[in-house]
């Protein structure tokens, strides 16, 4: 939903970042307003996933230039946990398995960290169980997964559902979903997409990072950005995603070559 007067939640300006000595982001500009759903598409290696990790504060990436402003404050000076607590959520492309850490306990500790930030009361185990059972319905997840270790032995689809469950509990204002559609069969994709749609409200912004148009059939984006060589090459509406699906990414290479020559 595009409302030009809606609050800007996240503003990325001239963002450059590198991992080790390799420059990956080379001047990303992007503005997310409340109520908007953005899709970032692009080939492998275009910098999509790096963008998501830089926004979440992954320690392996170094920002070398540019700014990221979240609700008027400098996001880049916050630690990863602070970013999460103030309402920035990263849905991982490859959710991490953590043997020995109970999923339920993990979800509770994370939820309470966010609640404390919001000035809400922390939930004890009983109150939390009620909440988590209610939120499980968002992703139609089997409660049995709560008793397991975090993501341990989960199938690809179950891991992604667990990601969206975390999002449903943390109620972020900006959700960045890194290839949430990868590794999902059609049914799981439908459920995950329905969950994401349900959680996208007039007060939140969503950034979907994806390879394929497939996800965008289930979640309609307001903006589609094409990323290449570490920056956003073109921005359009949902028709841009259809164009990519039809024409592939070859034209992106040509456009990029022309840009670099010029």
């Amino acid at each position: 939903m595009i409302r030009p007067d809606a609050n800007v939640l996240l503003e990325i300006r001239g963002l450059h970042a590198r991992v080790e000595d390799k420059a990956i982001l080379k001047g990303v500009n992007l503005t997310l307003r409340a109520g908007e759903i953005h899709a970032v598409m692009g080939r492998n290696g275009s910098g999509k996933s790096t963008l998501s990790k830089v926004l979440a504060g992954h320690p392996a990436y170094t920002v070398t230039a540019g700014t990221v402003t979240y609700r008027g404050a400098n996001l880049l000076e916050l630690s990863p946990e602070e970013r999460a607590r103030v309402g920035v959520f990263l849905g991982f492309q490859y959710p991490v398995e953590i043997p020995g850490v109970s999923n339920l306990e993990f979800l509770r500790v994370a939820t309470n960290a966010r609640r404390v930030q919001l000035g809400q009361e922390e939930l004890d185990t009983f109150a939390f169980e009620d909440l988590v059972r209610e939120r499980l319905t968002v992703v139609q997840m089997d409660p049995a997964f709560l008793d397991r270790s975090v993501n341990e032995g989960f199938s690809g689809g179950e891991k992604k559902r667990n990601e969206i469950l975390q999002m449903a509990l943390l109620e972020p204002l900006v959700a960045i979903l890194d290839e949430t559609d990868s590794g999902l069969d059609i049914d799981a994709l439908r459920i995950v997409a329905a969950g994401v749609s349900q959680l996208a409200t007039a007060d939140t912004a969503t950034l979907l990072i994806t390879h394929y148009q497939r996800l965008l059939e289930a979640i309609t984006p307001d903006f589609v950005h094409v990323m290449a060589a570490g920056r956003i090459l073109r921005t359009g509406g949902r028709e841009l995603a259809l164009e990519l699906e039809e024409r592939g990414y070859d034209w992106v290479d040509q456009e990029l070559a022309a840009l670099e020559l010029g």
Binding site: G57, E81, V96, I98, F106, A113, S149, L170
Partner: peptide, 25 residues
């Protein structure tokens, strides 16, 4: 590091994340 970052990305402080992982071990 990937486990620590995953926990931190959910709002869990680095110190507490380490403690959770040690405990799990």
């Amino acid at each position: 590091q990937d486990e620590l970052f995953y926990l931190q990305s959910r709002g869990i402080a680095a110190e507490q994340a380490s403690a959770l992982l040690k405990r799990a071990f």
